[in-house]
Design a binder for these strands. Structure first.
Lengths: 231, 231
DNA sequence: ACCTGAACACCGTTCAAGT
DNA sequence: ACCTGAACACCGTTCAAGT
């Protein structure tokens, strides 16, 4: 009675129905369809035709999934041209970051809820940002703080930009403009004169302009900090 | 058989067990005890010795409660001395804002999850900030964008500052420092030289210094923007 | 190794019913 | 007017059991 030893290495090997890459891709699709709040482990499992518990074989927990998602969202970010002056390099990185955050619905929320950069792509991008600042002449401390600040600013900026968009989409266009109107009129004019004077800008959702304003402000701040240090 | 008519005006009037002020106060206490994630309608009801559904008589929903909470958290903010130069006024406001956000656990998370300012106190504070910027000579657009930027920066800054604190508190002090050490060592030195060189600053939780850096940067940016506009 | 079934311990919110 | 009981429609996560 002999047992054939050769098939032992492939003993009833069924193709695994799932792997981490599929899960992450499905999660991105689900995000685009239903947004951050609809992105649940159970909905994701349903989309994959699988039990929710199955996901936990390929992913530690939801937090882990969000980190993988953040990495995937940032993957298409292009790196800046290293021959440019440091201001232009940082500007390019900021614009690229914002661009990829606007590709997928609620991407900024994913980045905000996932912790700091852990995947190789995001680590590389922060490495580039920090190197740019160091090469520009900033001290280690200033470079570190400035890098974190820029990163946080961009995420938070897009977060708010898209939150406004949601507020707009909730009512019909006439209704939402009426709501803004009512909001302004509900303020007593003599109590909040500046607020009322600037209401158009405060409720205006021109994200491009607002984002550029912030980036310019930070660049100006960094330039004068550098000038001060060098004098 | 006569019925006394005089008690009719007070017909079995039981003292209401709850009002909005009590709910908000209990929510603040609960926040300090269990943090943002533990602040649920059900836990809050339990703390008040009442059914969860009862809360919905005094508060529209959880979002509404968070707005009330945000207002309560900001209530102790003092207003800046109007005779100071605009830079000092803004600095004072920033420091005050951060101060009150550090009084209660996860207060920054409450502010971040509650929408824009709706209560009278926060409206008044943004009014003051915007007025300061207008008085300083900024255009309406610049003042609006700068005001929103400062507001967002402060909330996000404290948000991250306290998130770091949580990461520190999770392990014993030796463990967490070891984790940081391991995190750094897990990076290939030749792949991420800047990241490794700045690791101490990136993982250092000196919130005071980091916050001041950001405020200084924004002030510098605003000053050069103003100088440019005036030239 | 990989997936299922079923449970555990929760959420926010609604609503008829009580007082 | 104000509160309760009970339900509805969900969550993330675990774990013994199956294949």
């Amino acid at each position: 009675m002999k047992i054939k030893p050769f098939n032992v290495s492939k003993p009833k090997h069924i193709e695994p129905a799932l792997d981490q890459g599929q899960i992450v891709q499905a999660a991105i699709d689900l995000l685009d369809e239903v947004g951050f709040d609809g992105l649940t482990m159970r909905n994701l499992a349903k989309k994959l035709g699988v039990q929710a518990a199955s996901l936990y074989w390929h992913v530690r927990n939801k937090q882990d999934l969000l980190s993988l998602l953040a990495e995937e969202i940032c993957a298409p970010m292009r790196e800046p041209d290293r021959t440019l002056p440091w201001q232009k390099q940082l500007e390019e990185m900021a614009n690229e970051f914002r661009r990829v955050l606007l590709v997928h619905r609620d991407a900024a929320q994913v980045l905000a809820s996932s912790g700091g950069p852990s995947g190789p792509k995001r680590l590389r991008l922060t490495e580039i940002g920090l190197r740019t600042l160091l090469d520009a002449g900033f001290s280690e401390k200033d470079a570190a703080y400035a890098g974190m600040l820029m990163n946080d600013y961009i995420i938070m900026s897009v977060l708010e930009e898209t939150r406004y968009a949601v507020l707009e989409a909730e009512g019909t266009s006439e209704d939402s403009s009426l709501d803004v109107q009512n909001w302004v009129e509900s303020l007593q004019a003599n109590e909040y004169p500046s607020l009322i004077a600037l209401a158009n800008y405060l409720t205006e959702p021109d994200g491009d302009e607002r984002f550029r304003f912030g980036v310019d402000l930070l660049r100006n701040g960094l330039e004068s900090l550098l000038a001060r240090g060098k004098s």
